[in-house]
Amino acid sequence: MSAKIQRLAEIDRVIHEPGRLMIVALLAAVEEADFQYLRQTTGLTQGNLSAHLSKLDEAGYVAIEKTFRGKYPLTLCRLTERGKQVLDTYRKVIKAAL
């Protein structure tokens, strides 16, 4: 049991933050979503969401693509393979420890 608890120390701190965990969890369940959808769905402020997405992008967990749909500008976000792996590991560690 203590070994499982100790694994908590290995948890990825980038997605452990509640706001980022929310974004990653959402992106894991969709093909892709734009900034506005993530903002509406998570309830995060514009600045918070932007900062969290930058961190996830830097870590290589989320791929961000700027494009247009008609006249409407889209900032599309997708979870990368690395992001999926990290989320899976995170889930397993938390489940085993708690």
């Binding site: 929310m22 990653v24 969890a25 894991a28 369940a29 769905t41 998570t42 309830g43 938390i94």
Partner: peptide, 27 residues
């Protein structure tokens, strides 16, 4: 961040995603 954030650590990512989707789908 909204108040639901405090519940995040008590839920699995699947539950979080499902709850957020449901809210978004019905809003």
């Amino acid at each position: 961040m909204n108040q639901s954030s405090s519940r995040l650590l008590e839920e699995t990512p699947e539950v979080i995603a499902s709850r957020l989707f449901q809210r978004a789908h019905l809003r």
